[in-house]
Design a protein around this nucleic acid. Structure first.
Lengths: 262, 262
DNA sequence: CGCACGATGTGCGGTAATCGCACAACGGGT
DNA sequence: ACCCGTTGTGCGATTACCGCACATCGTGCG
């Protein structure tokens, strides 16, 4: 049991998953040539992998084009059923949504992005097709939000150990998503300190114009931040102060309730 | 361009996905030995695949055990963002839930099972911890329901072309899930005919005791059944007749609305 | 206390699966 | 008609992977 720990990666799996990941939000239907380019493999290999995945049922295909099938939900289903955070969070979110008629979500950190692991509400009792619907656009389960420009992302970042956070901030470029986006490392660091102090994050129109959000951390029994709870609203209906005043209390209560079961 | 069409499957992908599928609802944490057994491969291979998947971020591991990470939500995220059915259905479900304070879901057929591709509501304004919460248990996104014993499943089956349905019914065993479960092929066939005629399916306690459900088909512009809309309630609060009386109308309206956008 | 059992991590050689190229066929646009 | 892009599909070479085997470790039991 000596020897240098050498990880042997299975190339087939690496390529297969790379092919699967080619189907992202921006490109939903791919042919063999495009897939090869995106995955950085030869067309022949891409085609064989696509065929394999289609054969297994994860992709559907017609006319040489491929797209994700509903079978990929298998994984999210298993994950949601097994992971403690989404299981515990879902009923709490539903209740918040029912109480307030707003759209809530819970997110965890995965690399540079906050991943929505649970969501609830939206649309409320408002007129169908009102602005509310637009807000929830892109907030589906599994959606990935840039951590630096979203309330949930900042809460999660602020919850990281200082050393990890420093490493994260170091040498990282932040994309400007709206005119308001904070892209400077030092400014973000200051904001995160503030977030850590006040234990919430309020972000208006830094991710998308016309969208404001408030997030609070969800901690486990040991005090580690394991998720973020957030609500997203239209700035026209809720200014930052009003949002904080009305939602901060209920959300903190929810987070506290979760702490006892995590 | 002659030659016999021969599909070459990439073994690595097949095994990799098999390993990933080992993590289902019932077994959420696996070690190398268990995985090998479940996936039908040698322990060494299983271990290498697990390591690869963990390295890619789809699994987390500690103490030789592995479990799904939030990264698998990437796929469902892409699917939900791309597929037309969930995108169109989600706001409609949210609205139904807001109007009625009940838990709705939409499902599509995948093999023997109905897969939940969208859900909304539950808990409502009721007391936290009331029976309502129990109902939504297992109705998370990506959950898989046995088609023969659930309202959504039957609606989807009834929507299949007759020949496909016959093939499906032929030579298939149906598991008894509760004392009420219909397990005979001929009885199910009769039920499906009924469902096709009345265009809804009402199923009480055939899947789980203490749960009743109503489902209606969602059709696209061509009239093909592409999904099922369902509501799940406690039999104590809603008998079949009451459920049908109060929910059938709104659900049909929702399905009709969807038809125009699919 | 020691032994047996079952688990894990990791070399290593043989084999077979996969790679990438090449070519044929096809379609659409100019 | 010609060219450019695509797709499907052999085929030989190679290398990546499989399965075995061994060393190690922890635990429970006699």
């Amino acid at each position: 049991m000596v020897g240098i720990a050498k990880i042997d990666l299975i190339e087939g799996v690496v390529k297969g998953m790379a092919v699967l990941e080619c189907f992202d939000t921006s490109r939903q239907r791919l042919n063999a040539t495009l897939t090869a380019q995106r995955a950085g493999i030869t067309r022949a290999a891409a085609r064989r992998h696509l065929l394999t995945l289609a054969h297994l049922g994860y992709l559907e295909s017609a006319d040489g084009y491929y797209w994700l099938s509903s079978k990929v939900l298998r994984f999210s289903g298993s994950y949601l059923a097994s992971a403690r955070v989404p299981r515990a969070v879902q009923p709490v979110l539903d209740q918040l949504a029912a109480q307030t008629q707003e759209a809530f979500a819970a997110a965890v950190l995965d690399g540079d992005e906050a991943v929505i692991v649970s969501r609830s509400g939206n649309e409320g009792s408002g007129t169908p097709g009102s602005t509310r619907r637009l807000l929830a656009h892109g907030l589906h389960l599994g959606a990935r939000l840039p951590a630096h420009a979203t309330s949930s992302g900042r809460v999660l970042l602020a919850g990281l150990p200082r050393t990890e956070l420093s490493a994260w901030l170091k040498e990282r470029q932040f994309r400007r998503l709206t005119p308001q986006t904070v892209t400077s490392n030092s400014a973000l660091r200051a904001i995160l300190n503030e977030v850590r102090k006040q234990d919430y994050s309020l972000v208006y129109e830094e991710h998308e114009t016309g969208v404001g959000a408030l997030a609070v951390p969800v901690r486990d029994a040991q005090g580690n931040v394991v998720a973020a709870l957030n609500v997203v609203v239209s700035p026209q209906r809720y200014g930052p102060e009003a949002l904080l005043r009305t939602m901060f209390g209920p959300m903190c209560d929810a987070a506290a309730m979760l702490r006892s079961v995590l």
